[in-house]
Amino acid sequence: MSVTRPHDGIGTRSAYEEQGWCAAPWGLEPELLASVRSRVEAISRTVRPEVVYEEDSDTVRALHGCHRYDEVCAALVRHPGVVRLAEELVGGPVYLYQFKVNIKGPREGREWPWHQDFAFWAYEDGMPEPHAVNIAVNLDAVHPANGPLTVLSGSHRLGLVGDGEQGAAGDDWRAHVSARLTHTVSEEAARALAVEHPPRQILGGAGAVTAFHPSIVHASSNNTSDDRRAVLFLTYNAVSNAPAHPDRPAFLVERDTTPVRAAWGTG
């Protein structure tokens, strides 16, 4: 498996704290990866509120909250390696805050503008602090042409930047998952930040696992290739950091704050 690892010789947590992201030294098991891919493809063919499409298109853009109704996805939430990584980076017990799969269809998958995830969680949900972590699992190989995630290394230490606060709480949640996001960092601001915070594309084979900070500035480009790019994101929040009164749908913001217990299998 190949994945971007610029932190050779630096511990996972040290790399995460310094750069705002890190690559796990392990990947998802092939059998589990195949099972998750199969379930994602099946869910993508269903019609339900949790399935989001590209604007004016029948191309699937994202799936949300799959763990709430699919046992394979629910089992992935409890994967021992994933849970241990989340607990290590957050620094204590965690619960699942958000489960999503971002899908970029061949030649059709659209960009995600520059933004910070914590802007949505703070302004829309009332999350007190960015004491959470995103764990990304590549369901497909990610290469420069199929719309990889690009992060501005170290930008997580800046707090919230840009014009993110312009979006008002209570907006249609679809504006939080489209190519026209409610809370963004402008292209001009991102270019300025990139001078001190070098952009890094997060590349890797199917099954590669990467973690990144809620406040890191990131984006991804259109998929200009013939290869699908699907990445599954598990967001874990510190149990002590749960929003008091989230308003967005439960498939976007999990209400159950019970600490996740690591376990194998689907039972």
Score class of each variant (00 low, 15 high):
Gly205Phe: 01
Glu71Met: 06
Val83Leu: 09
Ala119Asp: 08
Leu193Glu: 00
Gly154Met: 10
Ala179Val: 04
Ala145Thr: 08
Ala189Glu: 00
His156Glu: 06
Thr184Phe: 14
Phe120Thr: 10
Leu63Ile: 10
Leu89Lys: 13
Gly27Pro: 00
Asp8Met: 12
Val3Tyr: 10
Arg174Met: 12
His197Thr: 12
Thr235Glu: 01
Ser186Asp: 00
Trp173Thr: 12
Asp247Gly: 11
Leu158Pro: 04
Leu252Arg: 10
Val51Gly: 11
His156Leu: 10
Leu181His: 12
Ser14Asn: 11
Ala179His: 05
Glu29Trp: 14
Ala141Leu: 03
Ile202Asp: 07
Ala34Asn: 13
Phe212His: 09
His115Trp: 15
Glu111Thr: 09
Arg61Gln: 11
Trp121Thr: 08
Trp26Phe: 10
Leu203Arg: 02
Glu124Trp: 04
Tyr95Val: 01
Arg39Cys: 02
Thr4Pro: 03
Pro6Arg: 14
His176Leu: 02
Glu129Asp: 04
Ala244Ile: 09
Ala262Tyr: 03
Ser44Glu: 13
Val60Asp: 07
Gln98Pro: 00
Leu181Ser: 01
Asp117Lys: 03
Trp121Lys: 01
Ser2Met: 00
Ser221Thr: 13
Thr258Gly: 09
Trp112Phe: 14
Thr210Ala: 12
His156Gln: 13
Asn222His: 10
Ile43Met: 05
Arg39Phe: 04
His79Val: 15
Val231Gln: 05
Asp56Val: 06
Tyr16Lys: 00
Ser220Lys: 13
Asn134Cys: 07
Arg261Met: 02
Ala238Trp: 02
Val77Trp: 11
Val231Asn: 03
Trp121Ile: 06
Arg228Cys: 00
His197Ile: 14
His183Arg: 14
Leu63Glu: 02
Val51Lys: 09
Leu232Asn: 05
Asp226Ser: 15
Arg5Val: 15
Lys104Gln: 13
Arg45Ala: 12
Arg229Met: 08
